[in-house]
């Protein structure tokens, strides 16, 4: 029972496809662990109590607020953030839907919304009829009034929307190449 007394212990988990080990106090929130070395600053502290969705990550594929996940809960888990989703077809589809509808303004909350939507699309692939409006019910946006998000979900991400699900949608507005 000796290890149990240690305040800090190394935790090993998967972050955006890579195995990482960190030695931190057991109650450290994943939010701080991801941000403080500047690696995953898309994970943002909006409230630190799980009530805004700005710090969402995907844990084993499902969106959850990183402020409520403590380091001791991480061993063996798979964590993804938007920094690691560059080639993910669901993320590309979500990204395009958000761009098409200008569903963001300041953008601070947007990675959190994107991950909730990716989480919903993945669940849908497993055969669950997920309502993407419910999937983002825990994300707060103060700028847009959710109009663009509503249009993105209804027009581009509904199960019967015309865009293909492989993320390869080509649009009149899509820009070429890697921006900036």
């Amino acid at each position: 029972m000796n290890d149990l007394y240690r305040a800090s212990e190394p935790v090993t988990f998967e972050l955006n496809g890579e195995t990482v080990t960190r030695s931190v106090p057991a109650a450290t929130p994943l939010l701080d662990l991801l941000r403080e070395d500047g690696q995953c600053t898309s994970v943002r502290p909006g409230c630190r109590i799980g009530r805004c969705g700005a710090c969402n990550v995907l844990m084993d594929g499902q969106a959850m607020p990183a402020c409520l996940i403590m380091a001791w809960q991480l061993p063996g888990r798979r964590i993804e953030t938007v920094e690691g989703l560059g080639g993910d077809p669901d993320f590309l589809r979500v990204r395009q839907a958000l761009v098409e509808e200008s569903a963001l303004q300041c953008g601070y909350c947007t990675p959190g919304f994107a991950l909730s939507l990716v989480s919903g699309l993945r669940e849908r692939r497993q055969g669950n009829p997920v309502d993407l409006g419910e999937a983002i019910a825990g994300n707060l946006c103060r700028c847009t009034g959710y109009g663009g998000l509503k249009r993105a979900v209804e027009k581009h991400l509904s199960p019967c929307s015309s865009t293909s699900s492989d993320g390869g949608t080509v649009s009149k507005k899509q820009i070429s190449g890697e921006p900036e």
Partner: peptide, 23 residues
């Protein structure tokens, strides 16, 4: 017009906000 590259940077978490400047 085409959407601003800025939108992509924001969605992908590549836009650094003043409170993200840990580096």
């Amino acid at each position: 017009g085409c959407p601003s590259p800025e939108l992509y940077r924001r969605i992908e978490g590549r836009l650094g906000y003043p409170t993200d400047l840990f580096d």
